[in-house]
Design a protein around this nucleic acid. Sequence first.
DNA 1: CTCGACAAAATTGTCAACAATAACGGAGCC
DNA 2: GGCTCCGTTATTGTTGACAATTTTGTCGAG
Lengths: 224, 224
Amino acid sequence: MTESAADRQPGERSVVAAIRDAIVRGEFVPNQRLVEADLSAQFGASRATVRAALIELTNEGLVERVQNRGARVRAVSLAEAVEISEVRMMLESLCAAKAAERISDAEVGELRELGERMQMAVAGGDVVGYSGLNQRLHRRIREISGQRTAAQVLERLRGQSVRHQFRLAMRPGRPQVSLPEHLAIIDAICANNPEKAAEAARVHLASVIEALKAADAEVSPLHA
Amino acid sequence: MTESAADRQPGERSVVAAIRDAIVRGEFVPNQRLVEADLSAQFGASRATVRAALIELTNEGLVERVQNRGARVRAVSLAEAVEISEVRMMLESLCAAKAAERISDAEVGELRELGERMQMAVAGGDVVGYSGLNQRLHRRIREISGQRTAAQVLERLRGQSVRHQFRLAMRPGRPQVSLPEHLAIIDAICANNPEKAAEAARVHLASVIEALKAADAEVSPLHA
DNA sequence: CTCGACAAAATTGTCAACAATAACGGAGCC
DNA sequence: GGCTCCGTTATTGTTGACAATTTTGTCGAG
């Protein structure tokens, strides 16, 4: 059954969030058609509301819409995922540098604690817990940086690549690789060292890109 | 009279383009209220259509919408303009580097010709012509880079900061400063030198940021 | 059996009307 | 005189129905 939450208030914002959730959670798979009437029935909202939500999600990059042909869940290819990671490499390094300049003592404690919890999660083999902490760390750095524009762009890109991110996190051995990279970012930011923080972020994202390519080569091994 | 083009086809895309144009051209000034009924009459489209258009423009960052209080033209502050330029610094340097790797011989000729025309425009004091060539250069570099994700983000940011960009271009002496920076970018890209191209783009955008701050300090000189 | 035209169904685009909400103004009260 | 309360007005949020477009399925000709 797909209509898990059909009794919600029909508010426009709610519908956007509901559809977005369904997409990032994988309930709506890539390339799946999103028929306005169906969604209207599923979420108990009017078609106009659903329509508005689809427009919004289109600009977020989660759905594709073509004239008179409807909307469907956007499928991000490996090439696009790499592109997104390249953009993230630039913007997260910017945010890391800014964060290193502006971080307060209280926030230093926060980041350090996050780092310790990530170490524990990896040591304990808690992959999903580590993945969650990972997201929280990146978001916290964006917030501390005070660069709202970059933060907004990064948030949008995260939604688009969440599927690839998740596949990556599940790869055996991946947490052991990314943990020290994350700790390096934390160290540099907490040491008020912008250049080092930016470099650490670049290294981390470069590693993500490599892992993305490797994961894909393994899934679709056409060596021809 | 504001209804200069009221006899257009009512297509949704057209309305989006029309409102966007009115905003970037300055016909709709920052913080101006955008009442759905008024726009509906002005552009000869239904209210639902302009509503959809406003949602789309909201996600492009050109208008602000608050629940039950309507939409207005978003005013980008100096601080936001600086933030945008910082993001541009990162992404344009990425695109410049990629373009330096991928540029073809034909495209080298194209960029070189653009550079010459920019020199002529500056020499002839054609400020608006130079501004147009400036935009074309940046867009062409984005296209050559093949980084569609970065190009999309940059395009969106350009719309938001077009007003500040324009104010900058009008500053006396500004073209003489930015011209050599642009030529340096062109040279590095045409020489297939990614590092140098990225650095040149960084230098250029840093200069833009400085000029932005200077221009603002001149307009609102509160030294207190 | 394949191809093309034609009809039917499904889906989106558009519109006008209705309900709900927030800003505005004036009257009454302390 | 200033403040609160309440009705008015302007504007947005929502709904349902209608028109336009695309896709699908069917039939007949070659």
